[in-house]
Simulated assay, not measured.
Amino acid sequence: MNTQGGRGARQRILDTATKLFYREGINATGVERLASEASVSKRTLYQHFPSKTAVVEEYLRAIQHGVGDPISPGPDADQRTPRDRILALFDAPRGPLRGCPFHNAAVEAADAMPEVKDIVHAHKRSFVTSLAKLTKQAGASDPRQLANQLAVLHEGAAALSTSLADRTPWTHARKAAETLLDQATG
């Protein structure tokens, strides 16, 4: 093992967890491998995180900030209309198509990690709430209903593109989102 000492160990563990959990899965990534790839001992890993579940929880909390908020997705959000910000959510993701990390965690954690399920539920509810604020700004007559429809569309595009290893579902979802927006704001 290439040991880099304790400095930055916690962040290395989280960075490694982010890479491995998303690319290979939570269940497929053992603590031994996580420690090895983060260049820490298992003892050091357990000093920072009392369990693998704790690593998974912190991984999800850390990526919550990186996933983006539909209200202000990026530095140029103020220069884009609410409609444009909504439609940007349906741009096909770059990189490997592995789906939503929160959905993946919910499936993998199932009943084995109830704390993870709570984090996933809170994130998904927050996403819909943020979408509702944005759909209200876009002029939707029923912002909450439109937000729920767009969230289902977004989740479906992520799942289908992952299952098919094809970015085309994002294109179809974006067209459907445009139609929903037109109907709700017309």
Rank of each mutant, 00 (worst) to 15 (best):
A88P: 02
Q4V: 13
N2L: 13
N27C: 03
P143E: 01
R94C: 01
I63E: 09
G95K: 00
K52W: 07
A157N: 03
A105W: 01
F102N: 00
A77H: 15
P96R: 11
R43Q: 14
R10K: 15
A77P: 11
R33G: 04
S163N: 09
E155R: 09
A35D: 04
P169A: 08
M1R: 05
T18L: 08
L164G: 02
L160R: 09
V128M: 11
T3D: 13
D118T: 10
A38H: 12
R83K: 02
P50H: 02
G139K: 00
E32W: 09
N2D: 15
Y46V: 04
N104Y: 06
M113K: 01
Q4N: 15
G156P: 09
E155L: 08
A38D: 14
P143T: 01
R80A: 07
V107N: 06
D69M: 04
G30Q: 04
R23C: 07
S130H: 08
K124V: 05
Q4R: 15
Q64C: 11
Q137Y: 03
P73Y: 02
A158F: 06
P82Q: 04
A35P: 05
S163A: 15
A132T: 04
E37I: 02
I13F: 09
T168N: 15
R7A: 15
A112P: 00
T53E: 13
R7D: 11
S39E: 15
H123K: 07
A106T: 07
E57W: 05
R83A: 02
A88M: 09
Q47D: 12
S126M: 07
A177Q: 07
A151F: 05
P114L: 06
G8L: 10
A177V: 10
Y46S: 08
L134T: 11
E57L: 10
M1T: 08
D166P: 05
T53D: 15
H48R: 04
T168D: 14
G156C: 11
A88F: 05
I13S: 10
L34P: 12
T162E: 13
R98V: 13
L87F: 01
A105F: 03
P96E: 15
A140P: 00
H65V: 14
Y59A: 04
G5F: 15
A54Y: 09
I13L: 11
L164H: 05
L131E: 00
P169D: 08
I26C: 05
S161H: 06
S36E: 14
A62P: 05
M113E: 12
V67A: 13
P114K: 07
V152Y: 10
T179V: 09
V56I: 15
T81M: 05
I71L: 09
H65G: 13
I71E: 06
R43A: 14
V55E: 03
F127L: 10
P82C: 04
Q4W: 13
N104V: 10
I86V: 00
V55F: 03
V116N: 08
V31L: 14
D166S: 06
V128E: 15
T135P: 01
L131M: 03
V116A: 06
G25P: 06
T3G: 14
L87G: 01
P169S: 08
R125Q: 08
N27Y: 00
L87I: 01
R144Y: 01
A147Y: 02
W170I: 02
P75E: 08
G99N: 05
S51F: 08
P169F: 07
I26G: 07
A109M: 01
A28V: 07
E155W: 09
E178T: 11
T44N: 09
I13E: 12
D76S: 12
D182K: 11
V67C: 08
K136E: 13
A176Q: 14
